[in-house]
Nucleic acid binder design. Structure first.
Ligand code: FES
Ligand code: FES
Lengths: 148, 148
DNA sequence: TTAATTGATACTAATATAGTATCAATTAAA
DNA sequence: TTTAATTGATACTATATTAGTATCAATTAA
């Protein structure tokens, strides 16, 4: 059982790259090569993130993508929802015969409780947090300004 | 993002049926029809559960399946592992370039922490607990003995 | 004018999930 | 002892999801 698919995985990595270069544009090509993400695949992910207002883009030479939303407000939960759909444990585990009344079904409650736990755990993890953790662990990285 | 697949879903339902009839055999056919599970699909699941010593079977007329392991010791985590593989958030989110040393990677720690949370939440849910909840909510069910 | 870029979209490949079919072996019961 | 109900084993098909590739038009800095 794999919780994060490649979509989400790559998206997080791309966002970390953009968050690190906050304020300047970075091309899909450079993100792809630097972080070992399939180029065309990445482009599709970036466009989805534009639609969700996480990032912005500029076309043409010297164009690229740039962080828009505050990295501390981008949670892994949000990314999972964008790329894998809302977290749901199971549509409805025990239909018909067993469970007549959906409304006050204990099993359903149990399921929804877990959904909540999972979701809130992922909510604690933001791009901002990950980036700070990364930089703390890996102080080699200098803060990128305009040096390509 | 769907956490429980049909395998696990059906397996849980089948186990609840068997747990309710503890001590007597119940055929795949009756489980399938009573709980609306595709017959041949179910049979495969039952055989997997035999291999994991959750249930036992008896061949021939009047044969069927019977609970073996204590329902309170069958966790949803165990079932997920059997039918969907071990819970893992992501193989390794940031390879190569970003993360040189796997050993003390903060991101990896974060991931593993969540894995633990998810896993332990599902560990709290046992077949025994689900069955008791079900019976409490649905007191129509009489304890099945030998009446078919 | 050109080359580097994104926008949009269609396509293919690989894998996982879901479901079906078949036949041999066993066994209770007619 | 024959038969029908059952499990054991396994192969097969269908569908959906995930992963990845390709193409071409539009934009824009140099
Ligand atoms: S399990 Fe679906 S309503 Fe009870
Ligand atoms: S993310 Fe894989 S080792 Fe750091």
């Amino acid at each position: 059982m794999k919780v994060l698919t490649k979509n989400t995985d790559y998206a997080i990595r791309a966002l970390l790259a953009l968050a690190a270069k906050k304020g300047s544009y970075m091309s899909a090509k450079s993100i792809a090569t630097e972080h070992d993400i399939p180029y065309q695949f990445l482009r599709r992910l970036l466009q989805q993130m534009i639609r969700h207002n996480l990032i912005v883009s500029k076309e043409g030479v010297q164009g690229g993508f740039m962080m828009q939303k505050n990295p501390d407000e981008i949670t892994v939960t949000e990314l999972i929802e964008i790329f894998q759909g809302k977290v749901q444990v199971s549509e409805c585990m025990f239909r018909k015969q067993i469970c007549g009344n959906r409304a006050r079904c204990v099993l359903r409650h149990e399921i929804m409780r877990i959904e909540q736990v999972v979701q809130s755990e992922f909510e604690k993890v933001t791009i901002g947090k990950l980036l700070r953790d990364l930089e703390a662990a890996n102080p080699v990285h200098q803060k990128a300004t305009t040096i390509s």
